[in-house]
């Protein structure tokens, strides 16, 4: 029961961060929120007992955040309008 409520809270946080990352105008804030989304996914995988998947997700989250920010530097403006 305790684990179920923990997973429910993490799922709600994932939905909130994912939706916010879609609708924010500032692209840097979107990237950081996407990184938070990935981190909540890591915690859910750990709670469900899949440390291997969680490890992969953590590593891929860090790498993709770096790539997104490196790509953001190439854009003229940091906003999607």
């Amino acid at each position: 029961m305790k684990e179920l409520s923990l997973i429910a809270v993490l799922l709600v946080l994932m939905v909130v961060t994912g939706t916010l990352a879609l609708f924010l105008k500032d692209l840097l804030a979107s990237i950081i929120l996407f990184s938070a989304f990935s981190f909540f996914a890591v915690l859910i995988y750990l709670a469900l007992g899949a440390p291997d998947v969680a490890f992969t997700e953590a590593v891929v989250g860090v790498v993709s955040t770096t790539f997104f920010i490196a790509a953001l530097r190439r854009l003229k403006r940091g906003c999607s309008r």
Binding site: P51, D52, A54, F55, V59
Partner: peptide
């Protein structure tokens, strides 16, 4: 947990 992909990353 881990393997080639994670170590390479």
């Amino acid at each position: 947990p881990g393997g080639g992909f994670q170590a390479g990353a």
